[in-house]
Amino acid sequence: MKYGIILAVLALLGLAPEGGAETGPWNFLMQLPARDSGVKLDRPIAIAVDSDSRRYYVVDPVGGTLLSFDREGKHLAAFNAGGALKQPVALAKGGSGALWVIERSTNQVLRVNPSEQQVRRFDLRYDDGSLIFPARLAVDGRGRLLVLDRMRGTVVRLDDNLKVETIYAAQSGGRGFVDFKIKADGIWALDGLAGKIYRFSDGAAPSVITLDRAMTFPLSLEIDQAGQLYVLDRHAGTIAVFGAQGDFRHELLGRGKRHGKLWYPAQVLFDWEGRLCVVDEGNSRVDIFNR
């Protein structure tokens, strides 16, 4: 109570620092890279995890770099595929040790095999020849590549020849997907502007969840094992947590530059242990929380 009054007085005087971090049930575990590691990120934009080797891969488009970290957050390597990566914006771990990378400078998807030092480039198109503008990607349990197409606001699943196999789109009135995640019960996609989350499972009509709280710039989505929905609000610097029916429950973090705050965050992702990873582009770091 006393602390609250002091903070209120400080706020009135314009002296209040950024408020304390709201982390709810989450505890800060580590930051990538560790502040004293000597490793520096410029403007990280995406993260992917390899659940088998328990590694984190962070995408930093400045300098075209992919950085890997072990489960303790120790920096392992920086990698630019022999200069083939100019401006990577997303990454997914594929089979046989390969990495799928979206290269924004050419709008291509690259298949990078670090061990064979081999890079293959692919232009993605629909069957009618129209262009796919890849923004996010993931590999499903059967090794199939899924890509978010910003041009149409859809998620497309590609076959082994990278031909469009299935298109997942919002219903009429949708505003286009901005993120998606693959889970055991289907493909989840966020229509940020419409404030809706879709779940697609093969052979069934999509289920649509309307979020009951408006956000300023919803950009990324995660779903925990209890079915709670985590929506990253880039401009607000928060993660809004919703129940499975889209009912707002609480909000994590907040806008700012201190530890525990976010400044233009870009992505949320759960790792192999369900730890919450938040890519914070504006603060040049990735924060990892556990419960």
Partner: peptide, 8 residues
């Protein structure tokens, strides 16, 4: 990129 379909 600002390329973002607003209505599919």
């Amino acid at each position: 990129s600002h390329l973002q379909s607003s209505d599919g």
